[in-house]
Amino acid sequence: MNYVIEIEGLSKEYEKGFLKKKRVLALDDLTLNVTGGQIFGFLGGNGAGKTTTIKTLMRLQFPTKGSARILGHDIADVQMHRRIGYCPENPYFYDYLTANELMSYFGELFGYDAATRTKKSDELLTAVGIVEKDRKRQLRKFSKGMLQRVGLAQSLINDPEIVFLDEPMSGLDPVGRREIRELIAGLRDKGTTVFMSTHILTDIEALCDEVAILRSGKLAAFGSLQELLGGEEASRNLEINVQSVSAEEIRERIEFIAGASITPRPHGATIHVLDESDIDAVLAVTRDAGGRLGSITPVKQSLEDLFVRD
């Protein structure tokens, strides 16, 4: 397999308290491999270790144990950082600079000449929705959402092969979220690998090819969304909505079907069955009582179920 991110047994322990005697394990023996050209979702609740992992990969923190490689290079290799981008959570930049100046400053760190910096700055700030008049304003006058957009733009200044986005939708309004979602999807289309941590499950479901879920610093689940949510067992469960009949009228006969359950809803009922072969029995009962079929939907485990499961 061609892995672009290889994390092996990564652990991070913090010392806490005045005497630094209390120890907190933020990351516990994390092993994870990410293939290139996809959007990889990195999920977990607050304090699960997502940001710690990303900060370690960005050499902002040193691991207590374990190692990691990006694009085949050890994370300590400074020159490897020419090929990657990073947008921190709630990014904060030099507030005395304008958006144009910030982009130019970061472009200069990559060795771009002035003309290239201007061109890239214009392209990227346009892509993230920073209009021309705002580009000449100091960043201290920017809202949280605008800073988030600038953060995304600066992470792409070097056309990275992999971009790490820590909560990229944070602070954005619904329109902004949709725009950034499209931008991230566009990056994948261009062949860029996106490693994205987020709390927003709908974004993960809409964008990600593979997902890892962290819980208390440990890897709790890993795989493609299809594998995690649409397993063989889950896909056989069905939700049948029937109309023009009340739940009470058919409850007794429905509950006679093995594993079936019924819940009332306005002008009808919702029936859950465990297998497709139960559909005919449910429809027969419904028609006998004068009702009719509304819809049949396969029930999949939601990402939220997976996310909150202990």
Binding site: H81, Y86, P88
Partner: peptide
Amino acid sequence: EKKTVYSIFSKPVG
């Protein structure tokens, strides 16, 4: 404190 180093050290800056 302002976390501006986050963006700097993610770039090829020692």
